[in-house]
């Protein structure tokens, strides 16, 4: 191939690639856009009977002033963990990660503990927990 032909081919390929990238970037940005959303999980007084309460992917732990909310999403790959009342541990049914009652990692493939979620105590005694979707 002559130098002139090679350069011509190289230039046209570069132009096509740049054109494709110019189109792909806005297309991908559109396709992958997600508006940040949160949902609220409300634990009414009836939902706070035990020291571990579960509702819609949230564990409410403790009673009175020492109350905490933990996300039930395993920090490994996002499966929802089960609470085992016999061992008082959270166990992931997908890949076997185990967390203690405070959400700290005990064993398994995960690298960190369960995420703590912000909660608000309402005047009627209910508790609202905000969860990012």
């Amino acid at each position: 191939m002559k130098r002139r032909e090679f350069l011509k081919k190289w230039m046209s390929s570069t132009l096509y690639a740049a054109g494709a990238a110019a189109l792909a970037y806005p297309a991908l940005s559109f396709m992958t856009f997600r508006r940040a959303k949160t949902r609220e999980v409300v634990f009414g007084q009836n939902d706070q009977g035990a020291d571990i309460n579960h509702k819609e992917g949230v564990y409410l732990i403790g009673t009175g002033d020492k109350i905490r909310a933990l996300s039930a999403k395993c920090t490994h790959l996002g499966c929802l963990v089960n609470y085992n009342p016999l061992t008082r541990r959270f166990e992931c049914p997908c890949h076997g990660s185990v967390y203690d009652i405070t959400g700290k990692k005990l064993k398994g493939p995960t690298t960190r503990g369960l995420d703590e979620l912000p909660l608000t105590k309402n005047s009627d005694g209910s508790i609202t927990v905000k969860v990012e979707i």
Binding site: H76, L77, C79, N82, P93, C94, H95, P109
Partner: peptide, 18 residues
């Protein structure tokens, strides 16, 4: 559920993911 499994062809990867 105590154990949740994926489709049959994913089971090898699921095991390794542990």
């Amino acid at each position: 559920a105590q154990i949740v499994t994926g489709p049959w062809f994913f089971l090898g990867i699921q095991t390794l993911l542990k």
